[in-house]
C-alpha cells in the first residue's frame, strides 16, 4: 500500500469501488457539507469534494474535506490548476494531509469564463499531468516540486480525470497514458452516456495494458429530467449525450423522468461492470446526492466492503 487511503484499500482488495461527490456551498454553511456527506456515508468509499466547480466561488475543497473527515468519512480532495500556483497547491496538500485527507484528484479545472468571475486571471502555473507528478514526488521522494525536502511528506493516493468523449478521440488513450506515466493511481471518468464510445476507449486502454497500471472508475450521472439531458448535451463542454438518451427520457411523463434517469444509471453500471479494466464507479448525482444510496443498492454495490 502506498497510502492509508480507504479507496486504495478497496481497489487493492479487487472489489468494485464506489465514489461520489459533494459540492461545497456558496457561503459559510458548514452544515450543508455535513448534510450532503451524511446522505452518502454508508454507500461510498470516498467523497469527492469539488474545487470551485464550474469556476464558481465555493467553500474551499480542503475546508469542506476537513468537515467530512471529521465525520469519520473519506473525502477526496479535488484540486484545480486554475486557481492555485504550485506553492499554494503544495501548502494546501500539507494542510489537507495534516487533517487526515489522504486521497486527491488532480484537475485542470473549467475555464473561469464559465463561472461568476469571468474577469479573473486563471493561474495554470502547472497542468494536471504536472500536478500528478508533483504530488507523487511529494509522496514517494518526500520532496517539494522545487526540490527541497519535506519534513513529514503527505502520502496521497493520487487520482485524475479522463474524458473519453472529448476531441480528438484518438488522443484520449494517449492522454491517459501520460497521466499514468506521471504517476496517477486512479482515474474518474467524465459522465458516461455514450456507452459504446466508452467501451471503445476502454478497449484502447486495455490494449495498451494501462488497466494494469491504473484503476478506472467509470463516471455515472443520473438524469433528473429530459431538460437536464438537453442542457448537458448543448451547454456542458466535453459531454457526449446520444439522442437515444434524450428520446428515452422524452418517452416517459415528466413526473416519471427522475425514476427513469435512475434506472438508466443503474443499467449503465450493470453493463459497465462487465467491461475489462473498469474497477469501480464514480457517481455524480448533481444536487441530487440523496439518490446515490438507491443507485448503489440497485446496482448491487451495497454493502460496501469493510477494509
Amino acid at each position: 500500500m502506498k497510502t492509508d487511503s480507504r479507496l486504495e484499500k478497496v481497489l487493492a482488495s479487487g472489489e468494485l469501488a464506489v465514489t461520489s461527490e459533494c459540492g461545497p456551498p456558496r457561503g459559510c454553511r458548514p452544515e450543508k457539507v455535513t448534510e450532503k456527506a451524511a446522505l452518502l456515508k454508508d454507500h461510498v468509499d470516498g467523497i469527492n469534494v469539488t474545487d470551485n466547480q464550474t469556476a464558481m466561488v465555493r467553500m474551499s475543497s480542503c475546508t469542506a474535506g476537513i468537515l467530512i473527515k471529521q465525520m469519520g468519512l473519506d473525502p477526496i480532495l479535488q484540486m484545480v490548476s486554475r486557481d492555485r500556483n504550485r506553492l499554494a497547491m503544495q501548502s494546501e496538500i500539507l494542510g489537507a494531509y495534516s487533517f487526515g485527507i489522504n486521497t486527491m484528484l488532480c484537475l485542470s479545472g473549467d475555464h473561469a469564463k464559465f463561472g461568476d468571475h469571468p474577469m479573473a486571471q486563471g493561474v495554470f502555473d502547472i497542468d494536471s499531468v504536472q500536478m500528478i507528478k508533483m504530488v507523487q514526488q511529494m509522496r514517494d521522494k518526500g520532496l517539494f516540486q522545487g526540490g527541497a525536502k519535506i519534513d513529514g511528506p503527505p502520502k496521497m493516493f493520487i487520482g485524475a480525470a479522463a474524458n473519453p468523449f472529448a476531441d480528438p478521440f484518438e488522443l484520449r488513450v494517449m492522454r491517459l497514458a501520460k497521466k499514468v506515466k506521471a504517476g496517477v493511481d486512479f482515474i474518474q471518468t467524465q459522465c458516461i452516456f455514450n456507452l459504446d464510445k466508452f467501451e471503445e476507449w476502454m478497449k484502447g486502454v486495455v490494449d495498451r495494458g494501462l488497466d494494469e497500471q491504473v484503476h478506472i472508475l467509470a463516471g455515472i450521472t443520473p438524469m433528473k429530467s429530459v431538460g437536464m439531458a438537453r442542457y448537458m448535451k448543448n451547454k456542458v463542454p466535453g459531454m457526449d449525450i446520444p439522442d437515444d438518451v434524450i428520446k428515452r427520457l422524452e418517452g416517459v411523463p415528466k413526473e416519471q423522468q427522475p425514476e427513469e434517469g435512475i434506472k438508466m444509471a443503474v443499467e449503465a453500471i450493470e453493463r459497465l461492470k462487465q467491461v475489462k479494466g473498469v474497477h469501480g464507479f464514480h457517481i455524480m448525482a448533481i444536487e441530487w446526492e440523496e439518490k446515490v444510496p438507491q443507485i448503489v443498492e440497485k446496482a448491487g454495490l451495497y454493502p460496501r466492503p469493510k477494509v
Binding site: S108, F124, S128, Q130, P168
Partner: peptide
C-alpha cells in the same frame, strides 16, 4: 496546458 488537451474540447 503542456501535456495535451483538457476535457473541454
Amino acid at each position: 496546458l503542456f501535456n495535451g488537451p483538457c476535457g473541454g474540447t
